[in-house]
Design a protein around this nucleic acid. Structure first.
Lengths: 196, 196
DNA sequence: TTGACTAGAACGAACGTTCGTTCTAGTATT
DNA sequence: AATACTAGAACGAACGTTCGTTCTAGTCAA
């Protein structure tokens, strides 16, 4: 086996663990998922798991930060590819809706988990980088005059609140159709609520 | 001790357990709270706890249903004391904001907990009676012409989504001032987003 | 009024299980 | 030979729960 392939195998094992864990945590929750479950489902031994991660919390932490990083990357790209708040925020919601359909487990882990319960050192998700970036877009929109001047938290809640509510409803099985089908209606209402 | 007083003592013990448990679950989460913790904090023995409740899940279940019932009572009263969707929905949000300030632990348990993880037989909170009643108010508003005709889930998310987001932000410590101070601004924007 | 009796609330040590983690042994790659 | 990785048995702590017992209050016969 070449060096490259070896490294790929290691990465593969690590990724295998992370991906299995994401599904287990999303389905049963952190505390209802044992390290033995992770080992069994990912076809990796307990020893291997502890070779790649410090402890169970370390797995959760790596997963969490992976997801945060993915989000930051996407949000950065969205910011650079549009030049006004209206288009940027709309693109953010579009992205969130699509991600909900394509990676529901990831979305559920980010939005519905009580990370504080098992990652006591992490900030609440609302204080994390992606959420801050989303609020920054709103702030810029207020400065440029596209969005009414008001409390930033209020404006952000109004602009994103409905969409986030639709996402959690969809994840809870209360919404039948894929979220993108609702995009136009949601966006129209949300933007109307804060537009200058 | 009279029969009445005896009964009050029993009820007192039960309520003591429930109230302590609400705080513990809200602070540390269901899985980080042991039955021993509940016994210690509520000054009640483990035996007593198991005398009053079938098991740990039974405590959580009783708490959950208590809270749901309280909400239903309040929402019913709101419905009868106003006669149009605008006033009713505004009163609902006012109530939620006040409750967040006065009983943050209760609010956190209802909104932020992943009940599914420890109450596998309960419906998700969004499918519960209080949320259904809140949607019913929106539906009536559409029928009476106050609210634009659109998907009920979309309209409900738009009308309540911002407020719920503010509540979770407040519970996460991202909002400094008491929520009622934001009521006017939030409501103005939320109503604008769906009004006919 | 007393004393025997009942009901059920309160108690907490002890039990068996499960968990996260460690440890030792083995395999494969360089 | 050295290193990186895998494997799963073994370990100790902590958990939810049980159970035999004590405590408390109420009832009622004498």
């Amino acid at each position: 086996m070449t060096s490259k392939n070896l490294k790929q195998t290691q990465i593969h094992t690590r990724q295998q663990i992370l991906s299995t864990t994401l599904n287990l945590f999303s389905n049963k929750g952190y505390f209802n998922t044992s390290v033995r479950d992770i080992a069994r489902e990912s076809d990796v031994s307990i020893g291997s798991i502890y070779h790649h991660f410090k402890d169970k919390e370390g797995i959760a932490s790596a997963m969490y930060n992976n997801l945060i990083d993915q989000m930051v990357t996407q949000l950065t790209q969205i910011k650079t590819s549009h030049n006004n708040a209206h288009d940027r925020c709309r693109a953010v919601i579009t992205f969130l809706f699509e991600m909900t359909e394509e990676e529901p487990a990831a979305m559920e882990f980010m939005l519905s988990s009580k990370h504080r319960d098992f990652l006591p050192n992490e900030k609440p998700i609302c204080s994390s980088m992606p959420f801050e970036m989303m609020r920054k877009l709103v702030k810029d929109g207020m400065l440029s005059g596209e969005i009414q001047l008001m409390d930033l938290m209020v404006a952000s809640s109004c602009l994103y609140g409905a969409s986030i509510r639709m996402i959690t409803s969809r994840l809870d099985g209360l919404v039948d159709k894929p979220l993108p089908e609702y995009l136009e209606a949601i966006w129209l209402s949300s933007w109307k609520s804060v537009a200058a």
